[in-house]
């Protein structure tokens, strides 16, 4: 493993190695000295062409906990606004000695292209509507921590699958690890190519809910929508939103996940968002551990 571009590239053993490493590294967050010397002298560049708080901060914290130097680069206020291309920006950063580039870009496939141009390890932190591998790894890590297993786990991924990179990464990773995934969305928000994905599809949330161990809600990505995909927010919320009444019909030990940012009242009601069976904040905590694990595994060895 030289880059982390897609969860589809991870074998079962590699994925489990990331999860096991993250489980050990999670302890570092509980110590008084929250730092390991492992990546001392290495440089990690956060190259972000899209807005992000959670992912960028999480990567920055993970790299710093491993003693790497971190350079944050956001497209706003940089040479990108003067017309510099992704390739030239990346080569500039490489010339400055970056060992690794964490990239978020609004174009699907940007991370793959970048991996061809630079020598260092490329970590995909979200490319368009394609993939977001570390999010899927932290989601799976959270499932394993909460429910103790992954094999045979029934996971429903609900909402705007069409515009979601989280959904695709999760489907591929969960399939590799033996879980059964059902995508639940209005027909207009299901990708055309979904029959090639290793999962099933349903348009009826109420039928899937009682059979699920995990319900993962996705944000409706209004900023990527240039068409009318559903009549109104209220109607979407009524058919696909998780409210207290639907929450009560879930299995007693089933958990609710959300990659954030949440839109309360749309895909999730405030009551459900604040439930102890909702793992949103745990997911953020686990995100740091998982990203430390990935950075260690990609940069720690020869």
């Amino acid at each position: 493993m030289r880059h982390l571009l897609s969860t589809g590239d991870l074998s079962r053993d590699e994925a489990l190695l990331v999860l096991d490493t993250a489980a050990e590294l999670a302890q570092v967050g509980d110590r008084s000295v929250k730092k390991l010397p492992t990546l001392r002298g290495r440089t990690v560049v956060n190259l972000f062409y899209e807005d992000s708080t959670r992912t960028r901060t999480s990567f920055e914290l993970a790299a710093k906990r491993l003693s790497a130097d971190v350079i944050n680069f956001s497209a706003k206020g940089s040479s990108v606004s003067k017309g510099e291309s992704l390739k030239d920006t990346a080569l500039t950063l490489q010339a400055m000695g970056a060992d690794s580039v964490v990239v978020r870009h609004n174009a699907s496939g940007a991370a793959h292209r970048l991996a061809e141009w630079v020598d260092g390890a490329v970590l995909n932190a979200g490319d368009g509507t394609h993939e977001h591998p570390t999010q899927a790894l932290l989601d799976v890590f959270t499932m394993r921590e909460r429910l103790g297993r992954l094999d045979g786990l029934r996971v429903a991924i609900v909402g705007d699958v069409l515009h979601s990179r989280v959904a695709r990464s999760n489907v591929l990773l969960l399939h590799t690890l033996g879980a059964e995934v059902t995508l639940v969305a209005p027909p207009t928000l299901v990708p055309v190519s979904v029959h090639t994905w290793p999962c099933s599809v349903s348009y009826d949330l109420d039928a899937v809910l009682p059979k699920s161990d995990v319900v993962m809600l996705l944000r409706v990505q209004a900023e990527r929508m240039h068409d009318a995909f559903f009549p109104s927010a209220r109607e979407y919320s009524r058919r696909y939103g998780l409210d207290a009444e639907r929450f009560a019909r879930m299995q007693d030990d089933a958990i609710v996940m959300h990659p954030g940012p949440m839109v309360r009242g749309m895909e999730i009601s405030a009551e459900v968002a604040d439930s102890t069976r909702t793992t949103v904040n745990e997911q953020v905590t686990n995100g740091v551990s998982v990203r430390m694990a990935v950075l260690y595994l990609l940069l720690g060895g020869s």
């Binding site: 190695l17 096991d20 490493t21 050990e24 590294l25 492992t38 260690y296 595994l297 990609l298 720690g300 060895g301 020869s302």
Partner: peptide, 10 residues
């Protein structure tokens, strides 16, 4: 660490 591929943690 840099003389070998990344090792699994104990």
């Amino acid at each position: 660490l840099r003389l070998a591929p990344a090792r699994a943690l104990g």
